[in-house]
């Protein structure tokens, strides 16, 4: 029972962070801000989900999930960093706050 409560808490918070990053993908204005959301919220959401699943079925696959978690925590932010740096070097313009209505869009 106590184990199930921990699993539910982990999975729900993981789904929360995944949902936050999905909303960020839709709401944020440009590539850099979106990558910023994906690099952090997605990593944390995935790790929390996998921790919940690993605790739920407590066997050898939990150890494998732990390895995958460590791999994601190292690789996901690095990949985001590499992609964003490549975009910056190739000259993708950075979004800046505009006056409301100048591009037909509300000032965010």
């Amino acid at each position: 029972m106590a184990v199930n409560s921990v699993v539910i808490a982990l999975v729900v918070s993981g789904v929360f962070f995944m949902a936050v990053s999905a909303i960020a993908m839709l709401r944020f204005p440009d590539f850099y801000t979106r990558s910023h959301a994906m690099g952090k919220a997605d990593t944390l959401g995935l790790v929390l989900l996998m921790a919940g699943l690993g605790i739920y079925s407590w066997e050898l696959s939990s150890l494998k999930l732990l390895f995958v978690m460590v791999f994601i925590m190292i690789a996901n932010p690095t990949a985001t960093h590499a992609i964003v740096k490549a975009a910056l070097k190739s000259g993708l313009p950075i979004w800046t706050r505009k006056e409301a209505g100048s591009d037909g869009r509300e000032g965010i």
Binding site: F71, I74, A75, T78, H81, A82, K85, K89
Partner: peptide, 18 residues
């Protein structure tokens, strides 16, 4: 072509053996 960042090189060199 272009030298990638130190972060990418360090992490890749760490991950390749695994």
């Amino acid at each position: 072509i272009q030298q990638p960042s130190t972060i990418v090189r360090t992490v890749v060199n760490l991950l390749v053996p695994f």
